[in-house]
């Protein structure tokens, strides 16, 4: 056998695809797949909501509390007053399927949330930041609005969707991409829900006090001191801009001819 020296042939072991083309194909393709999966899951959540009535949900979650919840002392005045206020406000929602329970989280970050089974969690930070009962009533009314639209279950479902994504891509360098795509896709739905909840909240405030004076004063303050704490930034991240909300609420009150002046009730603590 004769030995003939040959130079190595190029292009057999290396695919003839430009790395940027490969990168572009993967990023666009995977983004599309992620969005499709998220939309499918959102659809499934909506279907589940349709088939599980609020009464069943209220029964299932009647005594449920989140495991990581750290509450303030049960004898705290603020807890009692918040619960009393919710009882009064929810009376304006005829045939509400829930028995609303209030818990106060000891976090200093101003926030409030609606959880399954009619559980409303407000943070200590929020209770310290509101300056009148009317302000607090609007926030609580807003949460009641979430229950009415059953947004709290959607939020829960989306949380599950996000953690599912997280589980799939964990240990992967590109974990962030999937999460971000899913998160941004979901955030779009969120803002509409917040506006709807705002409308319901304001209607409840009007029903209770006969006017809407000071109802959105909290958001006005946040809008004025935008350079405030990071807590506010986090709170607003998933919500519409505070200034936009104030404008929307003002327009709504005008349209409905709800009086903008009235007696403001001081806090009882």
């Amino acid at each position: 056998m004769k030995y003939i020296a040959k130079k190595p042939k190029e292009g057999i072991n290396v695919s003839d695809v430009h790395p940027l083309v490969e990168a572009g194909t993967l990023v666009v393709g995977l983004t599309a797949i992620f969005i499709a999966i998220v939309l499918l899951l959102v659809f499934l959540i909506e279907a589940a909501l349709y088939f599980v009535p609020a009464e069943t949900e209220a029964e299932l979650f009647a005594d449920w509390l989140p495991e990581d919840l750290v509450t303030i002392s049960p004898s705290d005045d603020r807890l009692y007053e918040a619960q009393m206020l919710v009882n009064r406000l929810s009376a304006h929602w005829a045939d509400a399927p829930y028995t609303f329970r209030v818990e106060v989280d000891d976090s200093d970050l101003a926030n409030a949330m609606a959880l399954p089974g009619g559980l409303i969690i407000v943070t200590q930070g929020l209770l310290d930041e509101v300056e009148s009962e009317n302000e607090l009533a609007f926030v609580l009314g807003h949460e009641l609005g979430h229950f009415r639209n059953r947004d709290h279950l959607r939020a829960l479902g989306r949380g599950i969707v996000l953690s599912l994504f997280f589980a799939v891509v964990t240990g992967n360098d590109v974990a962030g991409i999937g999460i971000n795509v899913a998160d941004v896709t979901l955030r779009g739905f969120n803002r509409d829900q917040e506006s709807d909840a705002d409308e319901f909240g304001l209607a409840v405030v009007y029903a209770e006090y006969g006017h809407v004076d000071e109802a959105w004063r909290l958001f006005e303050r946040w809008d004025e001191q935008r350079n405030g704490t990071t807590g506010i930034v986090t709170y607003l991240a998933t919500h519409p801009d505070a200034g936009d909300r104030v404008e929307q609420l003002e327009r709504l009150a005008q349209r409905q001819q709800w009086p903008a002046e009235g007696e403001v009730i001081p806090l009882k603590w």
Binding site: N13, V14, S15, V17, P19, E22, A23, L26, V27, G29, L30, I33, V169, N172, D173, V174, I177, G178
Partner: peptide, 27 residues
């Protein structure tokens, strides 16, 4: 860059095209 693109590839499978020239160089 190669690592990130390969990571994306790892989600769906297939030829990791960004690694091929690397190993070709090594050989």
């Amino acid at each position: 860059f190669k690592r990130v693109i390969a990571g994306l590839r790892g989600l769906i499978g297939g030829r990791i095209k960004t690694y091929e020239p690397l190993l070709e160089r090594a050989r």
